Amino acid sequence: MSYVLEAAWQWFWSSSTLTRLAVVDFQVQWGLWAVASLMKTEKFYDLAGSATYILLAYLNYKWNGTGHPRQSIQTGCITIWAFRLGMFLFTRVMKSGHDRRFKEALQQPSLLWVFWTLQGIWVLVTLLPSLLVVLSPRQRPIGTRDYVGWGIWTMGFLVEVVADYQKTAFRNNPANKDKFINSGLWSLSRHPNYFGEVLLWFGLYISASSTFSGWEYLTILCPLMDYLLITKISGIPMLETYGIKKWGSSPQYQAYIKNTPALVPFIGSVST
């Protein structure tokens, strides 16, 4: 047994950084899946996802960082975003007592495993451009592309924070019980929090691309996949279905759907 463990450890450290990070990622997801399955709980799912972002970004910087400002800022942006979002989502699920996404999965360990595995994939995919910028030996001086990318990240981060705050404040007001929010940023987009998230990941791709060459530019597919997942699979479609089921008979909600863009403010209404 000790020989097997030693061989596995040597393989781990001889592997590429991305392989090692993938191993850590899925060890976390599958280990916590086992705990969640036994406890039949989804309450630490989002918190675990955010913690994995921070862990992988930290390990990548620890193993490969040279102290260049670009590496530090890129890693810092990820850490700030993940910590804020993780704590927000964990606080929300603890207050509500459940997450309706997992209603069926909690009764089916195999389906719950799919959720945790998809989270592991999502973490790696969205992180890839930022992992590559830390790995890159081509650390040029900070330039316009870096500032543009970090500026877009800042805008997206602030939009997400403000949107989450506005919706939380709306829900905490007893007068708004069973009502939908259509004020503040939510009057400009039906899902401004998701708009902010999509924006910040595209920003991090732009800043990371200042070190890219060749195939690395293809990691534009990473924020694109994040956008597609949010708009076509797990984010907006699920919430839109829930909203129509709950308020679909309301003329006010129908008008909101018709006149308010699904994601990008001021750019048409996108029905889902």
Score class of each variant (00 low, 15 high):
115 F>L: 00
179 K>Y: 07
124 L>S: 10
171 R>K: 15
93 V>H: 06
113 W>D: 00
111 L>M: 15
139 Q>K: 03
85 L>R: 01
72 S>F: 10
143 G>R: 06
95 K>M: 05
93 V>R: 01
95 K>H: 03
93 V>A: 02
167 K>Q: 15
176 N>G: 04
147 Y>K: 06
149 G>P: 06
179 K>A: 15
132 L>R: 09
78 I>S: 05
185 L>S: 06
117 T>N: 14
99 D>N: 02
176 N>L: 06
84 R>I: 04
124 L>D: 06
131 L>K: 01
111 L>H: 10
160 E>T: 03
141 P>H: 08
176 N>R: 05
90 F>N: 12
108 Q>L: 03
161 V>H: 01
147 Y>L: 14
73 I>S: 00
87 M>T: 13
76 G>Q: 11
184 G>E: 09
166 Q>E: 15
173 N>W: 02
68 H>A: 08
185 L>P: 10
117 T>F: 13
86 G>C: 09
125 V>M: 06
124 L>E: 06
143 G>T: 11
151 G>C: 10
89 L>K: 05
166 Q>G: 09
157 F>K: 01
142 I>T: 05
79 T>N: 01
121 I>N: 03
76 G>S: 04
175 A>K: 14
83 F>N: 01
76 G>W: 09
133 V>G: 00
151 G>W: 05
171 R>D: 05
148 V>W: 10
89 L>N: 07
112 L>H: 10
100 R>C: 00
75 T>P: 02
91 T>I: 02
92 R>F: 08
161 V>F: 13
119 Q>H: 07
75 T>I: 01
72 S>G: 02
88 F>N: 03
152 I>W: 04
179 K>S: 13
73 I>P: 02
77 C>W: 08
87 M>W: 14
163 A>I: 07
117 T>V: 04
151 G>Y: 11
139 Q>G: 07
119 Q>F: 01
159 V>S: 02
156 G>C: 08
167 K>V: 08
168 T>N: 10
173 N>V: 10
165 Y>P: 00
106 L>A: 12
97 G>K: 03
119 Q>T: 09
88 F>V: 06
103 K>N: 12
94 M>N: 15
96 S>I: 07
172 N>S: 15
87 M>A: 04
140 R>D: 14
72 S>H: 04
74 Q>F: 05
112 L>R: 02
179 K>F: 01
154 T>F: 15
138 R>L: 13
155 M>E: 03
99 D>I: 13
77 C>E: 10
147 Y>C: 12
147 Y>H: 11
171 R>V: 04
139 Q>D: 12
95 K>S: 08
169 A>C: 07
125 V>Y: 01
116 W>K: 02
164 D>F: 01
162 V>E: 07
85 L>S: 08
84 R>L: 04
175 A>V: 14
119 Q>K: 00
181 I>V: 15
107 Q>N: 15
89 L>G: 07
89 L>D: 05
112 L>V: 14
171 R>T: 07
161 V>A: 12
129 P>H: 03
95 K>E: 12
77 C>K: 08
